[in-house]
């Protein structure tokens, strides 16, 4: 079961802001989901291949050809800030 700190950490990883007053409620909801998963875990799945996708078909492939034209002006018309063709964002250095 998730602790309150784990809930805060998950929120942080997902870049979701959660008011401190809502953490406990969220903990309860998330733990409720984990209870459901635990019930499923009780099923014996020996020999069953893990499912990678809900649909039982395989990936179609495209030919290696350049089919896209430059549309950066159109795309950048929706961007808050652009300079010299670059999207500008608050400075982030790892």
């Amino acid at each position: 079961m998730l602790s309150l700190d784990e809930v805060r950490r998950i929120a942080d990883l997902a870049r979701i802001e959660i008011p401190e007053a809502g953490v406990a409620a969220l903990q309860q909801q998330l733990n409720g989901i984990l209870v459901l998963i635990e019930q499923m875990c009780a099923v014996d799945t020996t020999g069953v291949e893990p499912m990678a996708h809900a649909v039982d078909v395989t990936q179609r492939l495209r030919a290696d050809r350049v089919t896209e034209a430059d549309q950066h002006e159109l795309f950048q018309s929706a961007a808050p800030q652009v300079e010299d063709g670059l999207y500008l964002v608050p400075k982030v250095i790892e």
Binding site: E83, G85, L86, L88, P90, K91, V92
Partner: peptide, 13 residues
């Protein structure tokens, strides 16, 4: 990410 010359912001290509 280009970190220089964008008045305190980062440029993304």
């Amino acid at each position: 990410s280009l970190h220089e010359d964008f008045h305190g912001m980062s440029g993304i290509d």
